[in-house]
C-alpha cells in the first residue's frame, strides 16, 4: 500500500472508535444514531446470551447487545461507565454495549487493510478490516453481522 497517496477529505470515511474488552473497534458513523449511558435492560426470555435485554429509547423498544460477548470476548462486567451505542441498520434499531467511546476519526478507504488471515471464525464473520492508528489497531466491525438475527415467528 502506498503511504504517500493523498486522498480528498470527502473520500474519507468517518468512523466512531470505541473500546470493547481490551481491544479497539470502530464502526461507520452513518450507522450511529446516538450514544447514551447504560440503563438496566429488561431481560428477554429465550434470548441468545449476548442479548442483554430491551430498553426504552424514547418510546421505542430497543434490544441491547453485549458487543464483547457477541464478538466472542469475555462478557462485559456491567458498571456505570459503560455506554450504549445506538445503531440503525436497515430499519432495525439496536443498542451495543461497549466499554467506552474513544473518538471519531476520518479514514481514507485506502488505509483500511484487509483483515489478517486468521482462522478464528468470529473474527472472519464480524471484522471487515483493520486500520493502523498510531500504535493501535482498530478493527472495523461489519455492523450487519453483529446484529441479533431477527427472530422469526416460531413455527409451532
Amino acid at each position: 500500500m502506498q503511504a504517500n497517496v493523498k486522498t480528498l477529505p470527502d473520500d474519507e470515511r468517518e468512523l466512531v472508535t470505541f473500546r470493547v474488552g481490551e481491544q479497539d473497534f470502530c464502526i461507520d458513523i452513518i450507522y450511529v444514531r446516538e450514544i447514551r449511558s447504560w440503563t438496566p435492560a429488561t431481560v428477554l426470555p429465550h434470548a441468545p446470551d449476548y442479548v442483554l435485554g430491551v430498553i426504552n429509547l424514547r418510546g421505542a423498544i430497543v434490544p441491547i447487545v453485549d458487543l464483547a460477548r457477541r464478538l466472542g470476548l469475555p462478557k462485559t462486567m456491567l458498571g456505570d461507565r459503560h455506554v450504549i451505542v445506538i445503531a440503525v441498520v436497515a430499519d432495525q434499531t439496536v443498542g451495543f454495549l461497549v466499554d467506552a467511546v474513544s473518538d471519531i476519526i476520518g479514514v481514507a478507504p485506502s488505509a483500511i487493510q484487509p483483515t489478517p488471515d486468521v482462522t478464528a471464525q468470529t473474527t472472519r464473520m464480524f471484522i471487515r478490516g483493520v486500520i493502523a492508528l498510531e500504535d493501535r489497531m482498530l478493527r472495523l466491525i461489519d455492523i450487519s453481522a453483529v446484529l441479533p438475527p431477527l427472530v422469526e415467528q416460531a413455527a409451532s
Binding site: 434470548a47 439496536v94 431477527l150 415467528q153
Partner: peptide, 16 residues
C-alpha cells in the same frame, strides 16, 4: 409496543 421491528418474536411474549 411491538418487539418484532427491532428484535423479533419471543416465545410466550406478545409484545412489550
Amino acid at each position: 409496543k411491538g418487539l418484532e421491528g427491532n428484535y423479533g418474536h419471543v416465545p410466550g411474549v406478545a409484545a412489550a
